[in-house]
């Protein structure tokens, strides 16, 4: 589903190269964890996948379902089924969460040539999804992410992910700022989305989240490259021995 080939990318403003020849393949149905120390390029990778303009791809390609997505803008990538759960979701003052959900869902439907959702159907979907994440409907009347706690923001991200039904889910440090109860709820939400035709990429610093969402593959990112790949035991190994060992081997 996702194939990243020899990707090189730099920051447009100052030319700093962040991704330096990254290779990664994630199949449909797979849950892949990307781990790595701070500054290894994890978040940058998620931004590049989503099409953020601050980064420029200088070499290599990103194939999604066999097609390059480099020329697509963030909205086009989103409607093609790529979803990024942000580490720091943005506040959108004055735009009720509910309203935002409706606009996003209907824009995606429009792009796919589908009719907008009827209001009762929309409400039903939102209610069901919110209930499964233990979210209060009253919260959805508030402006998106404005005044939300860290945990509420992350839940709101997963809610959007559920409702938009993407094929490729990228979760950037979704566990940061979550207490143990919220972590459980969010993880359950992600697990519920596991399906044979959906790939999930989990970017995380710690192994903690992977106790709740069990990955099929684990990849260690360091200095803009995947330096080691393995199964879930690699995550346990990293937790026990730190990144130093793996980095040492690669060097």
């Amino acid at each position: 589903m996702l194939e990243i080939k020899n990707l090189h990318a730099r920051i447009v403003d100052d030319g700093t190269e962040i991704i330096r020849g990254l290779n990664l393949t994630v199949k449909a149905g797979e849950v892949a964890a990307i781990m790595g120390p701070n500054g290894s390029g994890k978040s940058t990778l998620s931004y590049i996948l989503a099409g953020r303009e601050d980064y420029e791809v200088t070499e290599g390609d990103i194939l999604y379902n066999g097609q390059s997505i480099l020329e697509m803008d963030p909205a086009e990538r989103a409607t093609s089924g790529i979803f990024l759960a942000f580490q720091y979701p943005m506040e959108i003052p004055g735009v009720a969460t509910m309203e935002f959900l409706k606009v996003a869902m209907n824009e995606q439907r429009k792009a796919r040539g589908e009719e907008p959702l009827k209001i009762p159907e929309f409400l039903k979907r939102v209610k069901d999804a919110a209930a499964s994440l233990n979210m209060d409907m009253a919260m959805l009347k508030r402006p998106l992410n404005v005044g939300f706690s860290g945990g509420e923001k992350k839940r709101a991200e997963i809610l959007q992910m559920k409702l938009l039904e993407p094929n490729l889910c990228v979760l950037d440090e979704t566990d940061s700022g979550l207490d143990i109860d919220a972590l459980k709820i969010v993880s359950d939400g992600v697990n519920a989305l596991r399906s044979p035709d959906r790939a999930i990429v989990i970017i995380t610093h710690y192994q903690r989240l992977l106790q709740h969402i069990e990955p099929d593959t684990v990849h260690v990112l360091y200095r803009g490259q995947v330096i080691k790949s393995g199964d879930k035991s690699l995550a346990l190994d990293l937790e026990a021995n730190g990144y130093a060992g793996v980095i040492g081997q690669a060097a």
Binding site: A50, G51, R52, E53, D73, P74, A75, R77, A78, T79, F83, L84, F86, P89, M90, E91, I92, F100, V103, A104, E107, Q108, A111, Q160, L164
Partner: peptide, 11 residues
Amino acid sequence: QKFYVMQRGIP
């Protein structure tokens, strides 16, 4: 903000 909103499929 713009990137965030566009990432949800809004042109």
